[in-house]
Computed example of a mutant assay.
Amino acid sequence: MNTTETTGTETIEIPTHAQAVVAHGANDLRVEDVPIAAPKPDEAVIRIAYGGICGSDLHYWQHGAAGESILRAPMRLGHEASGTVLIGAADGSGPRPGAPVTIHPATPGGDSATYPADRPNISPGCTYLGSAAHFPHTDGLFVSHVAVPTRMLRVLPSGLDLRLASLAEPASVAWHAVARAGEVKDRSVLVIGAGPIGALVVAVLKRAGAGKITAVDMHEYPLQIARDVGADVTLTATDAGAVAAVGADVTIECSGNHRGLSSAIHGTARGGRVVMVGLLPSGDQPVPVSIAITRELDLIGSFRFNDEIDEVVAALADGSLAVDPIITAEYDVADALTAFASAKDASSSSKVLLRF
Rank of each mutant, 00 (worst) to 15 (best):
A269M: 08
T251D: 02
D298N: 15
I293W: 11
I309W: 07
P286Y: 05
A245L: 05
R304S: 13
E253V: 04
G256V: 09
G272Q: 03
E253H: 02
C254V: 12
F303R: 10
M276F: 03
C254E: 08
R273D: 01
R259Y: 02
L279S: 13
Q285K: 14
G260W: 00
A269K: 14
R295K: 11
G272P: 03
L299C: 15
R304D: 08
C254Q: 08
V243G: 01
L279D: 11
R259S: 04
V275D: 06
V287W: 03
L261H: 00
R295N: 07
C254G: 12
N257L: 11
I265N: 00
E296Q: 06
R304P: 08
V243C: 00
I291K: 09
F305W: 08
L279A: 13
M276W: 01
T268I: 09
F303S: 12
H266T: 12
A269W: 08
A248I: 05
I300K: 14
G278E: 09
C254R: 03
V275W: 07
R295H: 06
R273W: 04
V250P: 00
S255K: 06
S290G: 04
L279E: 14
V289S: 11
A264G: 05
D284W: 10
V246M: 13
V275H: 11
V289D: 07
R270Y: 08
T251A: 03
P281T: 05
G260K: 01
G271Q: 12
I291P: 09
V274E: 03
I291N: 07
D249E: 08
L297C: 14
G256T: 12
S302D: 02
V277E: 00
L280F: 07
G283D: 11
P286K: 09
R273N: 02
I309R: 06
A269I: 12
L297E: 14
G256I: 10
S282F: 10
S302P: 01
I300W: 14
H266F: 13
E308A: 12
C254K: 04
N306M: 14
P281S: 07
V287T: 06
L297A: 14
S282C: 08
L297I: 14
V277P: 01
G272T: 09
D307T: 09
I291S: 10
D249K: 06
V275E: 10
G267N: 07
A245S: 09
E253L: 03
G247W: 04
P288T: 14
R295I: 05
R273E: 01
L299R: 15
G272K: 03
G272W: 00
E308M: 11
R270D: 10
G247V: 00
